[in-house]
């Protein structure tokens, strides 16, 4: 890449130069700066989840039974449905990444739309999910921590749905859509993987731990 040629934007001549004008402006994955931003936020949110999980385990030590009597263990119906939706959402997320990397607008829109649909459904059922806990946040520390974990994840879920919607809007707006925005499609979908997969251990903690004591 080192050359003695004169690139178009008039560099000093007679000087070794590295001409970067041919380098791509749209990259994916680790090569993409924004991807690292997303990873950073995943690290922050992941830490928050781990702290909440640690708090749950710590608080559990203060009770003889888990859930504390006479609270019933949470129902599993709606929560399992939400978990399922979140996991199924990974399919469109996967294909959204793939189509974004191919810069395939139609496919990206399709998959993002499906992801949005599933995300919206998951969020809607999620709001019902709080009822399944069988406890209020202000009943005792058990209620506080399970509500908080569920609430935290719901909060992220809502933002994710909004973000997906915004990106979908952009994909439909030819006046604004530029190549580099495909990287955002990828980014958002990578984040969905984080959001769905991080729910699995939290789900186990919130829903299955009370059933095994």
């Amino acid at each position: 890449m080192t050359s003695l040629a004169h690139p178009p934007d008039a560099p000093p001549p007679a000087r070794l130069t590295i001409d970067v004008s041919e380098l791509p402006t749209t990259t994916f994955g680790r090569r993409n700066l924004n991807w690292w931003g997303t990873v950073g936020f995943m690290a922050i949110e992941g830490t928050t989840m781990i702290v909440a999980a640690a708090a749950l385990l710590y608080i559990r030590g203060n009770f003889d039974s888990w859930p504390p009597r006479p609270i019933l263990p949470p129902h599993l119906g709606v929560p399992s449905l939400v978990l399922l939706l979140l996991l199924v959402k990974l399919v469109p997320a996967w294909y959204a990444i793939d189509s974004a990397q191919r810069l395939d607008r139609a496919a990206s829109r399709r998959w993002m739309a499906l992801a949005l649909l599933l995300g919206t459904a998951a969020t809607a059922f999620r709001l019902l999910e709080f009822d399944s806990l069988n406890v209020r946040w202000d009943t005792n520390a058990y209620g506080s921590i399970v509500w908080t974990i569920l609430g935290l994840h719901t909060f992220l879920l809502v933002f994710d749905v909004l973000e997906t919607a915004a990106i979908l809007l952009l994909l439909g707006d030819e006046e604004r859509l530029r190549t580099k925005h495909y990287a955002d499609v990828e980014d958002a979908s990578v984040y969905e993987f984080f959001l769905s997969l991080s729910w699995v251990p939290l789900f186990l903690l919130v829903y299955l731990l009370p059933r095994i004591g």
Partner: peptide, 18 residues
């Protein structure tokens, strides 16, 4: 903040907090 504002019990000994 939640303990103070909406009545959670993370740190309330009486309700299993610590």
């Amino acid at each position: 903040a939640m303990d103070r504002l909406i009545g959670t019990h993370f740190f309330n000994v009486a309700e299993g907090g610590d």
